[in-house]
Structures are given as C-alpha cells and as structure tokens.
Write a protein that binds this DNA or RNA. Structure first.
Length: 353
DNA sequence: TATTCGTGGGT
DNA sequence: TACCCAAGAAT
C-alpha cells in the first residue's frame, strides 16, 4: 500500500472554505431534493449549461412529490436540449420511488441512495456527503484528474481496473476525523480544485493547496497525468428526417428505448432515402423539399441529418405518432437539432406551398 | 468489462 | 479543424 498524504484533506478543506466556490444555486442547502437534482443534471454536463435548466426545474417542480406526480412528457420537455435523456427518465422514476418506497424522503446513506434509479456510486456519495455529512468520497472526472496528478497515477483512468483503484485511493484520502460540516467542504473542494485550479490544460499549480504534496509537480510532469487512451473515432451515419407538415402541425413520433434520443419526440427517421420513399405515399417524393444537411456530433457517432419537408393532408393510417402544433413545441421533448430545424423557416415555408 | 447513452464549450 | 471532455450510470 502506498503512503498517502494525510495533509491533503485538511488542506483541501481549508482551501475550499477560503477560495472555493460558494455561490452556486444548489449550494447553501441540505435539501436532498435540490442536491440530487443538481447532481443528476451535472453528470457529464458543465455548470454553465445546467444553471438555466436547474432554475426551470425547481420552478416547475419545487419538491420531489411534484416531480413524481408530473407526466413524463413534461419532464422530457423540460430536459430537452440537456442531453443524456436516460437521466430524465431515471430522474422521474427516482422521484416516484422516493415517494412510493421512502415516504417522500430521500434515504440518508450512500448505500441506500445508490439503489435508486440514476444514482450511481459518485452521485450517491455526493448527496450523502453534502446533505448528511457521510464520510464517503465522490469519484468524478475532477477527482480522477486531481488524484492522478497528486499521486502520479500511471493507470489508464478510462479503464475499469483504474476506476476501482481510484475509488480505493479516494476513500483513503478522506479526512481521518470528520468534524462539523467537513465533508461538505471536502467534497466541494474536490470539485472546485478540479474545476478551477487542477484543470485539464494550464493548471494553476501556484494556487493549489496541495502543490507541496503533488507527485506530478515534483516530477515536473503535470501534463502526463491523467493517463488516458485515445477515444475510438466516431462512427459516421446519415439519417434522413421526414418532416410531414399539415397546416401548422408537424408529425412526430416517440423515439424508442433504448437508443439515441429515447423518449423524445422526433420526425420519422430513415437510414436511406429508399427506406424513406418506401413508407411514403406515392405522391410525396415529388413534392418533398430537401434542405441543407446538418452535422450533429454525439459521443460515439457523427450524424449527418438530411431534412426533408413535405406539406400533406394526412399520414398513412398505420403510422404511429401524433400531430403537434408548431406553436406548442416548447412543451414537447425534442432533440436539440430537431428543435433547431423546426424553429427555422422551413416548417412555415412548406405550409405556404 | 467495454459500450452506449447528448450537447455545448474550450483549445 | 478535430479533438477533448464536463459534478457518470446503466447495461
């Protein structure tokens, strides 16, 4: 077992209280609902992106009971544009589980929290530490970067074995004795250090409370850590989107789960023009209009979206979906590029054909 | 265990 | 530009 610097935790706690972040909207509360909501939204998502979504969610759903009672489509609509939509579906399921199985109160331990939908080990630890002062560590992207540098950790942090090692190291770095509110400052300190000092590029080591303990800095090799293999190249796909417009309405279908945009509404998607023609009524192809391709990058795929628009009287009887007014799209969960396309001029122009 | 889930910002 | 990646979880 490697010797770990016992000074890390007290230094981090002191630094967070003096130089950490304190004004974020989900700080300054021990309400598990608010902390949980922020932690789910912040998974793989930057603070600046979350701010507006967080405010809107709290406005619509002030407590877990309100969220549990809401229709899933309202949740999806509010989540629309934030990405990783399984988070929204699990958020709703989790709220319902808290109400139905825990009397409307979040459980107070990381072990119990982790059994709830959408709450993994790190999110459970964050809620338990922030709200209940439990002595457990988060292991998010910040922690992996901070620990990799602090300890000159040579493993590929993208691999599962390294992830397990990181959990063990993170637990051993926790403050030995937790005094009042220490876990809040410590946990927030890990996040703040990674976000504002121990950044991926150009870390500000001169401002770091752990610089004297940092093995990577001692070796003058900060840029080496964290060690991480290159990600596989994204797979390229073309998707034909068929926007059928009837008056001021557009035909939308619910995207199947599992898969991309699961649970959201979107126009019919085809992976070839032939497939789109086969299911279309005979007179549509001569009237549809193709507009500029849209490039849309996901984590593992590079989509090229090919929008096609056609003014129609109706759709075949066996199509599963619904007509949605263009003026009502704000209350529908749409993928970001679909919302962008529908907010452009084409939908209304097709109407005038 | 490695892959599959969005989107926008930063370099 | 083409990456990287951000308070990860589910499968």
């Amino acid at each position: 077992m490697t010797d770990l610097p016992a000074e890390f935790a007290p230094r981090l706690i002191h630094w967070q209280r003096h130089a950490g972040r304190h004004g974020l909207p989900w700080q300054g509360t021990r309400d598990p609902y608010r902390v949980w909501l922020s932690e789910i939204m912040l998974q793989q998502t930057q603070v600046s992106t979350v701010l507006a979504y967080y405010a809107r969610f709290l406005d619509h759903f002030p407590d877990v009971a309100a969220l549990a009672a809401a229709p899933i489509d309202e949740v999806m609509a509010l989540w629309s544009g934030l990405g990783y939509y399984s988070r929204a579906r699990n958020l709703h399921r989790c709220a319902q589980a808290v109400v139905a199985e825990h009397g409307g109160r979040f459980p107070a331990t990381a072990r119990e929290l982790e059994t709830l939908p959408g709450i993994g080990a790190s999110t459970a630890a964050a809620i338990a530490a922030f709200c209940f002062g439990e002595r457990v560590s988060i292991v998010d992207g910040n922690v992996k970067r901070v620990l990799a540098r602090l300890l000159a950790f040579e493993g590929d942090v993208g691999q599962a074995a390294s992830q397990r090692a990181m959990w063990d190291l993170a637990q051993r770095l926790l403050p030995a004795e937790v005094e009042h509110d220490d876990m809040r400052a410590y946990t927030q300190g890990l996040m703040d250090l990674g976000a504002t000092v121990c950044t991926r590029t150009r870390p500000r080591c001169e401002a770091c409370p752990a610089s004297e303990l940092c093995e990577a800095l001692k070796r003058q090799d900060i840029a080496r850590y964290p060690v991480k293999a290159r990600r596989a190249q994204r797979r390229f796909e073309r998707w034909w989107l068929l926007f059928a417009i009837r008056g001021d309405q557009v035909w939308l279908q619910r995207r199947p789960a599992p898969g991309i945009w699961a649970g959201l509404h979107a126009p019919a998607v085809f992976t070839s023009e032939e497939a789109m023609q086969v299911v279309s009524p005979a007179d549509w192809p001569s009237r549809w209009i193709a507009t500029d391709a849209v490039a849309h990058a996901l984590t593992h795929r590079e989509l090229q979206l090919l929008p096609h628009w056609v003014a129609v009287e109706g759709v075949p009887a066996d199509w599963v979906g619904e007509w949605v007014s263009l003026s009502a799209l704000a209350s529908v969960g749409l993928p970001a590029p679909v919302r962008s396309l529908l907010s452009g001029d084409w939908a209304t122009q097709v109407l005038d054909q």
